[in-house]
Design a protein around this nucleic acid. Structure first.
Length: 506
RNA sequence: CGGGGCGUGGCGCAGUCUGGCAGCGCGCCUGCUUUGGGAGCAGGAAGCCGCAGGUUCAAAUCCUGCCGCCCCGACCA
């Protein structure tokens, strides 16, 4: 027997969480770093997750009347300048295109030539260029609402990057809408937030808290930013999606005007909302264990791998025929509107084969050997359970029940993550306790600590920033459902306006 | 951009202090034996030791500069 490891991923979460995160991604074959700083190559097993996420979101968007379109990667610099807070928020992380041509210099090296008259920025987000288009599309209240989404890449020149969580280039969708009234735009903001809540909780099995961002944390130029925040296994918060009510700020900046039914000229009310490949980072950190990633069935790259046990030539053909037939039956099954996704791995590499699929997080592993075939059964292992919980099932029963099994796994992952979130969410009313909650024993190499603190806050940016300076803890969101009970601000002791969620964040 | 750590076959690492043929484990390839939780034996391939200079008879090792990665900050989805 080979050397046994206690865990497939080392270091473990407890030993070194950031390193564990990277090793999980490597071992699961989701993605790798690219030669370009801060960028990533998303490999097929990882990209399939994004495809499944984006397909489900796309369906949900379209069900609310949203249509897809595509806008340019390059944006004139002066577009960004139109909205003051927006330019302040994004200017420092913009990639700028200044030339259109390369020429060889005397050393034979390619150097930029052909300076552009007007530099272009690579979109960090598309409010401005889409606003420009909308200003031409909207003339009358009869043109409203405009409900547009685009699937795109964006670039934000980040100082510190982390694969999937914060990359210089990332994939996302950005929805942009224009409405005739303030209320309609606000309703749309919440409507899309609800889509994100569904994505996180029903598909990613990732419980989220929802609410509004503080003035310091909201989107540059937004009147209100709503968000979903999830707790990762290191108890930090991950902003997993945002939906913004932009008021008339961008309509004024871009000249989105329409003639109302009363024959008056009005500015449109706009929203924007987005989620990104960051969701995959969230999924990893919400569910994975020390043996690798655990994929929630609703978005899993694949649902089940069939592992034929090929022992001797006489029986191999029978085993393979049984395996292929099972694969076909499974693929004809419908799981929440999509065919069950099946892999067959017939490599003869012993137990290592099993471990590869564990590290890749596939929900179900099905071993098929001569002993099973004799009983017309299969041996089923679940990624969310221990090996000793593996069961032998009649083949037909397995085919019949696979959707139920996957759904049970899906809800178990959700319940487990929810229990974790609740376990590490505390009402804290006293400053000393608050500081202790968020202070690691070793600041240079912090152990997993903290969580979500539900604490009273007076609402002032001063207090928020003071807490950030002291502990690197921020207001993650002001929950919609918070109690009116004020308490005393955790920072200044003045009358609070209710409890908000404080946490360290990605 | 500041403080700390680290760059050596695909992955994880030793070797660096004290200069002297580039190593180990896993993985990979071939063959045989195996096979229901990380197989065994035999053979084999694979490295500009992050990059560029310098010192030296000789540099993974010493010196200088640069680049990249990770952690802690500033910035952020």
């Amino acid at each position: 027997m080979a050397k046994k490891h206690e865990t497939a991923i080392r270091p473990t979460r407890a030993e070194n969480y950031p390193e564990w995160y990277q090793q999980v991604i490597r071992a699961s074959d989701l993605a790798e770093l690219s030669p370009v700083r801060g960028c990533m190559v998303i490999k097929p097993w990882g990209y399939a997750l994004w495809e499944n996420i984006s397909r489900a979101l796309d369906d949900m968007f379209k069900a609310t009347g949203v249509k897809n379109a595509y806008f340019p990667l390059f944006i004139p610099v002066n577009f960004l300048e139109k909205e003051a807070r927006h330019v302040e928020g994004f200017a420092k992380e913009c990639a700028v295109v200044t030339h259109h041509k390369l020429e060889k210099d005397q050393q034979g090296e390619l150097v930029p030539a052909g300076k552009l008259n007007e530099p272009l920025i690579v979109r960090p987000t598309s409010e401005t260029i889409i606003g420009d288009a909308f200003s031409r599309w909207v003339r009358s209240y009869r043109d409203l609402p405009v409900l547009i989404n685009q699937w795109a890449n964006v670039v934000r020149w980040e100082m510190r990057t982390r694969i999937f969580l914060r990359t210089s280039e990332f994939l996302w969708q950005e929805g942009h809408t224009v409405h005739a009234t303030r209320q309609e735009a606000i309703d749309r903001t919440y409507m899309m937030l609800n889509v994100y809540i569904r994505m996180a909780e029903e598909y990613l099995a990732m419980p989220v808290i929802t609410g509004e961002k503080s003035a310091a944390e909201k989107f540059p130029g937004a009147e209100m930013t709503t968000c979903i925040e999830a707790m990762m296994q290191d108890r930090k918060a991950l902003q997993a999606g945002t939906s913004h009510f932009l008021g008339q700020n961008f309509a004024k900046a871009s000249g989105i005007r329409f003639q109302s039914a009363m024959e008056t000229e009005e500015f449109g009310w706009t929203t924007s909302w987005g989620v990104s490949t960051r969701l995959i980072g969230g999924l990893i950190m919400a569910h994975s264990d020390d043996n690798g990633i655990i994929l929630p069935p609703r978005v899993a790259s694949s649902h089940v791998v069939l592992l034929p046990i090929l022992k001797n030539i006489d029986e191999n053909e029978k085993v393979m025929a049984f395996t292929r037939e099972l694969a076909e039956k499974l693929r004809r099954k419908n799981y929440h509107g999509t065919p069950v996704r099946v892999e067959i791995d017939e490599r003869n590499i012993g137990g290592a084969r099993n471990w590869e699929w564990i590290k890749k997080g596939i929900p179900l592993r099905v071993e098929i050997g001569p002993k099973d075939i004799a009983k017309d059964s299969v041996y089923v292992s679940r990624r969310d359970k221990d090996r000793k919980d593996s069961v032998s099932m009649q083949k037909d029963a397995f085919v019949d029940e696979i959707d139920t099994i996957l759904d049970e796994m899906q809800s178990r992952l959700y319940e487990k993550a929810l229990a974790f979130q609740r376990e590490h969410t505390r009402d804290i009313d006293e400053k000393g306790e608050f500081d202790a909650f968020f202070t690691p024993a070793d600041p240079q190499r912090p152990e997993i600590h903290g969580g979500f603190a539900r604490s009273p806050w007076c609402g002032s940016t001063e207090c928020e920033l003071a807490i950030k300076d002291r502990l690197n803890v921020t207001v993650r969101c002001i929950p919609f459902d918070r109690e009116a009970d004020g308490g005393k601000c955790i920072e200044c002791g003045a009358a609070g306006k209710g409890r908000v969620i404080f946490a360290k964040a990605y």
